[in-house]
Structures are given as structure tokens and as C-alpha cells.
Design a protein around this nucleic acid. Structure first.
Length: 993
DNA sequence: ACAGAAGCTTA
DNA sequence: GTAAGCTTCTGTT
């Protein structure tokens, strides 16, 4: 190695653990072998290899090695027997991946370095030193803080998962000390994961401050008596020896007697066939393809290479010897392909969940179909562009014959109520897909001014051919987020049934796991394929062009691929539904809601422009007056909307009493802080709070809402997301009609603008205390159930139980506290949160909670049981079987864990309530029709439904609505607590609620 | 032009 | 203490 050379050292062991926890679990499709960390590792190495040959990337490695821990016993254990003693065994599905990652390294033609008695970190330190002495530079591929002590002028670190370089400034920024003081810092803070003791009570912030003050650890220990804080001084004096031992534990060894020299690390060009053989065995289809392209190798001609898999506990060590078994992959994958994958001829004529036989367990079948959907290649050139009716009819016949067709609409807008249909794509088998351009326009520079491109089937003619297919009860239509396509097609007089929605399948199966339910992440996760990005063909930002401007060849590749991906996803996901027992959640809570919401969105609600305009004027006046007063009081003009400037003025220039802390070092100017200051008699903060309220109302509601009035329908059409929340609630956007103000008189006025059409009324029907009722039922709390059965004031009852005060003549403050506790329970209560809510000391909040649990021991049992269940299974369930996953419930970080525990407790309650109102919505239209009523649902706000109906039917409608809502849980679940619904009718939402 | 923080609205 | 979405400001691309 010489000056100018660059050594890359990959911290293999560190990467394994980080990738395992950071990446979604991934198993080999053919046999379920866990390979998530291996996949991450291979992708990372490949990316580094690509950069290595890209001279523009700046840093070009000439030498390369991957370093591993050999075993957990090292020289440090002699120094301190407890070192890494509390480390638990690695997760079961990680064990086989240790060996696989070493084999991956070899497939990449990279040195795989490990040494008995030393950690990977020591080897890295030693090689970095050798490289430095030879005049070369080193990049350590890791983000482990233990390695940061090595950073210097010729040694830097690179975090491959965040794509971030770590040099001296980054270390200082993160830890407050330069790299050379990291050893002292870690000696003070210790490390609970590795069981390095450190000094109790000293964290990174304090340690950095002490080192800043004293210079280094020895000086600090020698002059510890000078420390002012009593507890801190005592702890450092008492634990000086522990700090010295810790320093030796964290200090990396730079003189390990290594066997290989740097000359063995010279980077070799990739061996395409060898690498592809390994990747094929792992079934990393996407990476295999990329490697084949880059190395000019014909992947199809290469056999999957045998690998050895060790499930045993010894898999930590070198991967020779004991228990190696040949991988089952090639045979299983072949069998799966034969079973039902390859072409149209083998497409099952009904849904795969129906086609399982006695020979296949659901899981086997799921694996086989998944393998088939994944094994077929994505070939954009094979997609067909349909330009005439005869071809279209032939495809419709093919789809009808297949019985299953995936389809997707391409439009000019994200808003389905304004979107123009531009084209339609469909797929009848993996790899067999087509696109029908309908309304592509020529470029805008054209003098013809966006005339239709030639050779397209007219929309009307195409729909006449497609309508029978889309409405054919014997052909299953599959889409991703079908509600969008349904709204678009409904506007053209076409219905879509029967159907499946891959987004909803994923939501039901994997709700709460990391990664969204959009098509791109699903394709990545299940098919290992990255589809063409929308922005790559239609641009983004100022380069954005509507889909109707996209070149038809590009549009074909993009649109047909979407249909192809959707079909393959369905083949992967649908069988998992039955395998996991989630069919009824999908079929009863998700799928039927799609047409219901599509209709609600299409109906929209009338919003009175004039009312909003008048309100906007009033708000502007009020805000302007406050602005003048604020500027006068502050003595200068500034941007009131800037929390930064406001903080500087209030707490800096004006010197108001110590504002509360903030996250990024800024003064907090939250309403809470300003209210507190106002209570102390300061004039300005009150006015800021008022100003914020007025400007918020103006910008978010009175000014924004008119822009959402559809020019054609003159109504506002929100968009409901079915798969956006973790708990099963809906969300509303564009505009969000689930957060229209109500609490303050000023805000409430916004609701007067939501009105019924002439001769009509709005009806608002809302569940009373639904989540507390669900709690009473699920946790089986006798007193609560009795209270709800008797119809008494639940918060007063709680207060009476807790504080032994009669309900008659109860002070409102006592009831307020009980109410906060009741809400707290639903939110997974913590003393910290309750104290905040009630502005009382944490100890007092703690006492309240204790008292509450004494009075209602069943609640504590319920909460403990929920946490335990979630910890065991990784999810919680609503009473209707909806699963909500909390993959971080077992986090070693106590605050992360506590957060997940609270969320899981809340999810059972919030999720059950969400399921109940979903059931009501699904039944509502039929019930209204059966009662010969013309009322229809317009909006849903979590526990409230808004209807519009003709005035004369109001009285008859309310009992029907209440009946459907109050009995919505039946018969799937029989609630032991009655549900109660309040309903009112009026001309506006304000009066009706 | 975009991303993240801060702040505020709802159930 | 739970669950969302939107606007403004601010600093980076």
C-alpha cells in the first residue's frame, strides 16, 4: 500500500445486527429461510463496489476487506469478566444469516477477516493504523460509536444505511468531543449493551462537559473534588476505578498480530458468475439482474450455487464444519415454478385462497404462489400497446377466460373528482400486460395546442368494450387502491365488481409494520423489484407534466408494469390472508367499505363561499389589530409567525422568565408556555396566542376551503384514506374534514359554512364515549359496565369512586381530574402525561393513577395482559380480529418500549371503535334504502357520521341511523355495554352537532 | 423545490 | 399519555 491508496474496512458484524433490526424481515420465497440481513448486506456491498469504479464519486477504494467478530470471548473478558455478560443470544432468525453473510463476502471476492480473541473493532483499528503508516487513507464502513475514536485526518467513517460520512466535525457534533476524547467519554458513560460499567449517573452530555472542563479522564479523576454538584462529585470519586477499567475496555487494540497484510486486500474486479450464483441461491432477483447487467453476464445460464446453512447456536463462529446442510433452494424453487407460475395457461381460474387442496397447508401454498409471482422476470419490452378495438376485444376475452385481471387507470390528476381518463392498463398473468392509451395529447409547444395523439381508441368506444368486463361477476378485478379508480370509472358510468385491492390486503396483513402500503414499497418488499417511478416519466416540481403529455411508449412501460406488479402482489398477498386467519377482517371491514367511501367522496358537501369569505375578512381585521399591538408591545416589527424570532424577542430581548426548554435548543413558544406567561401577568403572550388562533383559522380553513369547491359539482369532495392509520381509523385529506374546529366559539363559526342544500337538512349522529365503552367491555369492568347501563355521568362516577365524593354537588374540578384520568387510560396512561395534562406534580399524578388502579384493578390487569400479548406475538387485536403490529414492542430502549406499550393499549380500543363505525357505514346505505329513505352519508369523523336528507324525512331517518350505529357490533361481537348515539338535524354542521 | 421542525386543528 | 393532516418558517438542495 502506498500514498494515495484508499482502504475500505467494512464492519461486517456491526452491519449484521443493524441491518437485522433496521430492515423489514425478509425470507427466501421458496423455503422461508430468513435472509433480510443478507439482502441488506449484499445490496450495500454492491453499491460500494459500483462507487468503487465510479471515479466521479471522489473516494475510490484500492483495498477492501470485510471484518467480523470471531466469537464473544476476547481478551477483554480477562480484564473484566462481566464484559458483554448480559448480552442475550441473537434472535433465532438471525443465526443462519451469520454464515450466509460470510459466504456473501466471499462471493464478492472480498477478504473475509476474523481472528480468535479479538473483536472486529480491534482488527479494524489495527488495519487502519497500518494503512495510515503506509501513507494511505481509510474509510471504515460502520456507524458504531465504538469506532469513532479512530476518526482522524486519514481515517473517516461511512454510515451505509444513512449514506452519511462521519469525519471529525460529525463526531464532535454528535458527542460534543473530538475523536481522540471518545475513549475517555465512553469510559465515563459506560455502555449498557456491552456491560461496560462507566460512572453511574454520567451520560454523554455530562461526560462531554466534564472533559471540556478538565481536559481528559486522568485530570478529571485527579481533580474530582473540584466538581460542584454533590451527587456527581461523589459518584466520580466512588467509581474512579470503574472508569479506568472502562477506559481499557473501550480502547481499541491497534497492534493485533494480524495474519493477513494490506497487500492481501487489493480490490479485485467482481467475478460475475460466482456472485450471480450466490445471489440466485438467495433469490435476490432484483440484485441478480443488476449485477448481471453491470458485469455483462447472462444470468439465465448460471446455476444457483450451493450454500451451507447453520441454524445452530455455534453459527457465530467461522462457517466451516459442523452441521452444514445443502440449501433446499434450487429444487424448491423449480417445483414452485412448475406448480403454477409461468404463463397464462397456468393461471388459476379462481382466487388462490379457494384453490388450496388437502395436500397444501395454507403456508405452503402461500410460499409456492409467492415464488411463482416473483420468479417471472419484468420485461418492459414485452408489454403491449393496444391501439385498436379488435386487439382490445381479444384482451378482454383473454381476461374473461383467465377469470382474474389486474387493472389500473392513468389520469391527468391526483384528484379523482377532477381527473380525466388518459389510459387503462391491465395484466392477465405475470409478465403479460397491456396498456390502452385513450387521451394522450401532443406536446404543449405544438401549435395544435394539445390535440389528441393519433391511433388511440376513443374513450367512449373503449369503455363500451371494457364495461362488461369490469362489471362481469365472474371475473375478479384486482387493483392497488381501487377506490381511486372506482371514483374515476363511476364518473364514466362504469362500476367495478367483484374486486380485490392489494393495498387493503397489505394493510390487513401487515398493518403497523414498517413500510407503507403503496405499490412501490410493496413491490420492493414482496417482488424485489423497483417499478418505474412516476416522477421519472412525468417529472416533478416545475418539470411536472400531466400523464396525458407522457410519450405513449413510456406510458406503456409504466402503466402496464403497474398492472403487472399489482397482479403479482395479489398472488403473493391473497393466499396469506387465509393462512393468517384474516379473511374476515378483509372481507367484512375493508373491501365493502371501498364503494361506500367512493360514493361519499363523490357526493361531497356544500360549503358556503360567502360565509367563509366574510369570516376571512373578520379574521384578517382581528389579526391586523393584534399585529399592531404586538409590534408596539415588542418595540419592533418582526415576523410573529416565526417561533425563532418570537423566542428571541420574548426570552432574549425582553428577558421574560426562563421559557421552557426545546428539542433543538430553541426557546419553546408553544401555547402552553405562552399561557403560563400570560397567567403571570405579561400582556404580550396572550396576544400572540390570540393572533395565532386567528391566523390559523384564516389560512387553514376560511382561505383554503373555497379552493376545494369543485367547479362542476360546486361541492367539496374530501378524500378518505383506508390504509393510512395504524389503528384502523380512516384519515381525510384534500381537504381534511376531520379537523374542522369546534372547541372555541371563533373556530366553531367555520362549521356554519358547511350547509345542506335548499330543502335539505344535515344530520349529525355521533357515538357517545365509544372508546370508554369499548374499554368497559374489553377489560370487563363491572362498575363501568353498570354505569353505562344506567346511563350515568361516567366521569362523575369515576371521581366519586376514586375520591369518595358524592356525585351530587361535586366540584367541577374533581370531575375534570377524573375525566383526564379516563382519557389517560385510553391513551395508555403515564404519570408524566397525566401531570402535564392537569398541570400538577408528577408525584401527585402518580398517586391518582395508583388510586385509580386500586378502585379498578381490572383495568391494570387489562393493560398488563395487553402488553404481555403484544410482547409475545408482536401485535394486538381488536374484538373483530384486526391485527395491529408493534415490531418495536421488544426494543431495548425503555422509552421506545414504553411508547409502544401505550400505543398497543390504545390501539385495541381505538381500533375496535374504528371497526364498529366501519361496520355501521357498510350497512347504512342498505338500511336507508330498505326504509325507503333518501338520506345519504356525506362525512365520517371517527365517531360521527354526517348525512344529508330532504327536510320531510329527517324525523324518520334519525331512528334508522341510530339503530344501525348502535347495533353495529352485532352479530360478530356481542357488546356487554350498550352503545349510545346522539343525533341532531339542522341547516348547518354547527347547529346539527 | 423539498424536508423537517414547530405549532395547531380534530377524535 | 393515543391517532391523524395542514401551514408556516427555516435551512438545505
Amino acid at each position: 500500500m502506498k500514498k494515495g491508496d484508499h482502504l475500505f474496512l467494512v464492519d461486517g458484524s456491526g452491519y449484521i445486527f443493524r441491518a437485522y433490526h433496521a430492515l423489514p424481515p425478509l425470507t427466501r420465497k421458496s423455503d422461508g429461510l430468513p435472509v433480510g440481513a443478507v439482502s441488506g448486506f449484499c445490496n450495500m456491498l454492491w453499491k460500494l463496489m459500483l462507487d468503487a469504479r465510479n471515479t466521479e464519486a471522489g473516494v475510490v477504494p484500492t483495498h477492501f476487506a470485510v471484518i467480523f467478530d470471531y466469537s464473544s470471548k476476547t481478551f477483554r473478558n480477562e480484564l473484566y469478566p462481566e464484559y458483554k455478560a448480559n448480552r442475550s443470544a441473537p434472535p433465532e432468525d438471525l443465526i443462519p444469516q451469520f454464515g450466509l453473510i460470510r459466504q456473501a463476502t466471499k462471493a464478492f471476492e472480498l477478504p473475509c477477516i476474523e481472528m480468535e480473541g479479538f473483536e472486529a473493532d480491534d482488527l479494524i483499528a489495527t488495519y487502519a493504523r497500518l494503512a495510515c503508516e503506509a501513507g494511505g487513507d481509510t474509510t471504515i464502513v460502520s456507524s458504531d460509536k465504538d469506532l469513532m475514536q479512530l476518526v482522524g485526518p486519514s481515517v473517516s467513517m461511512y454510515d451505509p444505511m444513512k449514506d452519511r460520512q462521519i469525519n471529525i466535525p460529525e463526531v464532535i457534533e454528535k458527542w460534543g468531543v473530538p475523536p481522540e476524547k471518545m475513549i475517555d467519554l465512553q469510559a465515563l458513560t459506560g455502555d449498557s449493551v456491552d456491560n461496560v460499567p462507566g460512572v453511574p449517573g454520567i451520560g454523554p452530555k455530562t461526560a462531554a462537559q466534564l472533559l471540556e472542563q478538565f481536559g481528559d479522564l486522568d485530570t478529571l479523576l485527579a481533580r474530582a473534588s473540584e466538581i460542584k454538584q454533590d451527587k456527581r462529585r461523589q459518584s466520580i470519586i466512588d467509581n474512579a476505578e470503574k472508569a479506568r477499567i472502562s477506559r481499557e475496555l473501550v480502547r481499541l487494540k491497534i497492534d493485533v498480530p494480524v495474519a493477513d497484510g494490506l497487500e492481501d486486500f487489493v480490490l479485485q474486479p467482481p467475478n460475475g458468475p460466482k456472485l450471480i450464483g450466490f445471489l440466485k441461491t438467495m433469490e435476490f432477483t432484483s440484485l441478480t439482474r443488476r449485477v448481471a447487467e453491470a458485469t455483462g453476464t447472462e444470468a439465465g445460464e448460471i446455476e444457483a450455487a450451493p450454500v451451507s446453512v447453520q441454524w445452530g447456536a455455534d453459527a457465530h463462529g467461522p462457517d466451516v464444519g459442523a452441521g452444514a446442510i445443502p440449501a433446499a433452494a434450487p429444487a424448491a424453487a423449480t417445483a414452485a415454478r412448475a406448480n403454477g407460475g409461468s404463463t397464462a395457461a397456468a393461471v388459476p381460474s379462481s382466487a388462490p385462497s379457494d384453490s388450496g387442496t388437502a395436500l397444501d397447508t395454507p403456508t405452503d401454498l402461500a410460499n409456492k404462489i409467492a415464488a411463482a409471482a416473483v420468479s417471472e422476470k419484468f420485461d418492459h419490452a414485452a408489454y403491449v400497446t393496444i391501439r385498436d378495438l379488435a386487439t382490445l376485444k381479444a384482451w378482454v376475452a383473454e381476461a374473461t377466460e383467465a377469470g382474474v385481471v389486474a387493472f389500473d387507470t392513468e389520469t391527468s390528476s391526483l384528484d379523482p373528482m377532477q381527473a380525466e381518463l388518459v389510459g387503462i392498463s391491465f395484466a392477465t398473468a405475470p409478465g403479460r400486460a397491456a396498456y390502452v392509451p385513450l387521451a394522450h395529447k401532443s406536446g404543449r409547444g405544438d401549435l395544435l395546442g394539445g390535440g389528441l395523439v393519433e391511433n388511440q381508441i376513443p374513450v367512449r368506444d373503449a369503455l363500451a368494450v371494457l364495461k362488461p368486463l369490469l362489471e362481469d361477476g365472474s371475473v375478479l378485478k384486482i387493483a392497488q387502491n381501487l377506490k381511486y379508480d372506482l371514483v374515476v370509472m363511476n364518473r364514466h358510468g362504469v362500476d367495478i365488481r367483484p374486486f380485490d385491492d392489494t393495498m387493503l390486503l397489505s394493510y390487513v396483513l401487515d398493518g403497523g409494520t414498517n413500510g407503507g402500503h403503496g405499490m412501490d414499497p410493496l413491490s420492493e418488499k414482496w417482488l424485489g423489484h423497483t417499478p418505474i417511478a412516476f416522477k421519472d416519466i412525468a417529472g416533478s416540481g416545475k418539470n411536472f407534466v400531466g400523464f396525458d403529455q407522457v410519450d405513449i411508449d413510456k406510458a406503456t412501460a409504466y402503466a402496464a408494469e403497474d398492472a403487472d406488479v399489482t397482479l403479482r402482489l395479489w398472488r403473493v398477498l391473497k393466499p396469506r390472508l387465509a393462512a393468517k386467519g384474516l379473511t374476515s377482517v378483509y372481507e367484512r371491514l375493508e373491501r365493502p367499505l371501498v364503494p361506500v367511501l367512493a360514493e361519499m367522496e363523490q357526493r361531497g358537501i356544500s360549503v358556503d363561499r360567502q360565509i367563509l369569505s366574510r369570516l376571512s375578512g373578520e379574521l384578517a381585521q382581528g389579526a391586523a389589530r393584534l399585529e399592531d399591538e404586538i409590534n408596539t408591545l415588542a418595540g419592533e416589527r418582526f415576523n410573529i409567525g416565526s417561533p425563532k424570532q418570537l423566542g428571541d424577542i420574548l426570552f432574549g430581548r425582553m428577558g421574560l422568565p426562563g421559557g421552557t426548554k426545546t428539542k433543538t435548543g430553541q426557546w419553546s413558544t408553544s401555547a402552553q408556555v405562552l399561557e403560563d406567561l400570560a397567567a403571570e401577568g405579561h400582556e404580550l403572550p396572550r396576544k400572540i396566542v390570540d393572533w395565532r388562533q386567528l391566523t390559523k383559522l384564516k389560512s387553514t380553513y376560511t382561505d383554503a376551503l373555497p379552493g376545494f369547491i369543485n367547479p362542476e359539482t360546486k361541492r367539496v369532495h374530501t378524500s378518505y384514506a383506508l390504509a393510512a392509520t395504524t389503528t384502523g381509523r380512516l384519515s381525510s385529506s384534500d381537504p381534511n374534514l376531520q379537523n374542522i374546529p369546534i372547541r372555541t366559539a371563533e373556530g366553531r363559526k367555520i362549521r356554519t359554512a358547511f350547509i345542506a342544500d335548499k330543502g335539505n337538512k344535515l344530520i349529525s349522529a355521533d357515538y357517545s364515549q365509544i372508546e370508554l365503552r369499548v374499554l368497559a367491555h374489553v377489560a370487563d369492568i363491572a362498575q363501568l359496565k353498570q354505569a353505562f347501563a344506567d346511563g350515568v355521568d361516567i366521569h362523575a362516577m369515576t371521581a366519586s369512586e376514586m375520591f369518595s365524593v358524592p356525585v351530587e354537588g361535586m366540584p367541577s374540578e374533581v370531575r375534570r381530574r377524573a375525566k383526564a384520568i379516563n382519557f389517560g387510560i385510553i391513551y395508555g396512561i403515564s404519570a408524566f402525561g397525566l401531570a402535564n395534562q392537569l398541570s400538577i406534580p408528577r408525584e401527585e399524578a402518580s398517586d391518582y393513577i395508583k388510586k385509580y388502579f386500586e378502585r379498578f384493578p381490572g383495568i391494570r390487569a387489562y393493560m398488563d395482559e395487553t402488553k404481555a400479548f403484544c410482547r409475545d406475538t408482536g401485535y394486538v387485536e381488536t374484538i373483530f380480529g384486526r391485527r395491529i403490529h408493534y415490531p418495536e414492542i421488544r426494543s431495548s430502549n425503555p422509552s421506545v418500549r414504553a411508547f409502544n406499550e401505550r400505543a398497543s393499549i390504545n390501539a385495541r380500543l381505538q381500533g375496535t371503535a374504528a371497526d364498529i363505525i366501519r361496520r355501521a357505514m357498510i350497512r347504512m346505505d342498505d338500511a336507508l334504502v330498505a326504509a325507503k329513505l333518501s338520506a345519504r352519508m356525506l362525512l365520517q369523523v371517527h365517531d360521527e357520521l354526517i348525512f344529508e336528507t330532504i327536510e320531510s324525512e329527517v324525523a324518520a331517518t334519525i331512528p334508522v341511523v341510530r339503530h344501525v350505529m348502535e347495533n353495529a357490533a352485532m352479530p360478530a361481537a356481542s357488546m356487554s355495554v350498550p352503545l349510545h348515539v346522539d343525533a341532531n338535524a339542522a341547516d348547518s354542521w354547527d347547529e346539527a352537532h
